[in-house]
Design a protein around this nucleic acid. Structure first.
Lengths: 211, 211
DNA sequence: TGACAAACGGAGCTATCGTTCCGTATAGTC
DNA sequence: GACTATACGGAACGATAGCTCCGTTTGTCA
């Protein structure tokens, strides 16, 4: 449960004093977050809020006191998830073997995101309005991936013409494909994508690559 | 507009005599289908039926007389689209250059499906109950792709370990990624996938491929 | 042209879901 | 233990969207 947020942070107001919350309020907030995380992951973003509230063991009123809208709740979870992935990328950026670090990262993300419908849908953009908070978060992720990618490219492990945007696109696509085509093994798809990201073999002979 | 269907075919009853429909009924049916096709493609499957009816220039009542549910209407369109793709695969299966035929097919599908939200969502399975009719259709598509793939593999243009299911998964993933990550060029993503599908360079030297 | 079955249109019914409101319960404090 | 601000619960409201119903229109056939 990495997702945390300061409940009400209005945009412009320079409010500072985070007044202490009551113990039960804190507890319930955490419960809602936890319940939402699992329910969204399992069912996607279209589950009714009632379901989340019930799973959390609170009333809908309580849910709405902590998160002003369903979308905000989802956003909170999303920001947590994406931030986590970005941290993972940063953590791997300094590894000894840049190639292994890069491809390991891809595998990690795919594995982690498999069966997380909500994340997938969000990355996909299906039916979700991209909020500013999430957009910023994505920028952060893209920056982290850019670094990891650059190192791997410098080491010759990844094609030089690949951009961070392409990496993100390809990764989310792999997650989606894996989730919805159970017939095709996740590993097989990932393998294809990874090999496609590698440079076309040093001096080269093989069949015409790159049109 | 390849989508066609015999309006009411009950499951078990061996009814044969397709009683002739009135001219306006036929016309309206076609209009609904056409409108639905473009609206679904543009907005996804969540558009209200009213929108489709309006675009078709008919009332919702008329829409529902031709298609018992919104889902059935969508299904009709889907079946048409998927069948078309399957035919494309079959048409290319006998080409001179199996490799070019195979990769050309992938490019064709991606290009054709770009900007077709509904198809993508359906391939994804997001929020759509897979109906029998569509499932059959998918089987047909998979068979067609299997043939095209087999020929290409025999010619050494595609990895031998790739299965039809993987190809479909990878293609739909590419469509989705291209649609939702405008930052990453469709061509770039397709390139990566295609190269990943190719065999790992004849005798080989390059960096370790295939774990 | 008249008659009738077939088809149409769209108001409105129903179910669902996000959100609000307010009476009740409780954590924290003296 | 009493008091109060804080938080809770869940009934109810409003909006939306799928679908139905029935009075009206129209194609077809003689």
């Amino acid at each position: 449960m990495p997702t945390q947020m300061t409940q009400s942070d209005g945009a412009g107001a320079p409010e500072e004093a985070a007044k202490p919350q009551r113990a039960d309020a804190l507890r319930n907030r955490a419960r809602v977050l936890e319940a939402a995380e699992s329910v969204f992951a399992a069912e996607g973003i279209s589950v009714p809020v009632d379901v989340i509230a019930e799973k959390a063991g609170v009333g809908v009123g309580t849910l709405y006191r902590h998160f002003p809208t369903k979308e905000k709740l989802f956003e909170a979870i999303l920001v947590g998830r994406i931030t986590e992935i970005a941290e993972e990328a940063r953590a791997r950026a300094g590894a000894d073997d840049p190639g292994a670090a890069f491809f390991g990262f891809l595998a990690h993300v795919v594995e982690e995101s498999a069966s997380k419908r909500d994340l997938i849908q969000a990355l996909l953009g299906a039916g979700v309005e991209i909020e500013m908070a999430v957009a910023d978060c994505k920028k952060n992720l893209e920056a982290a991936v850019a670094e990891l990618l650059a190192v791997a490219q410098r080491a010759g492990a990844v094609r030089p013409d690949v951009t961070p945007a392409v990496v993100l696109a390809v990764v989310s696509a792999t997650c989606m494909a894996a989730d919805h085509h159970p017939g095709a093994g996740t590993g097989d798809i990932l393998q294809i994508v990874c090999d496609g990201l590698r440079p076309p073999a040093p001096p080269a002979t093989g069949p015409e690559r790159r049109a």
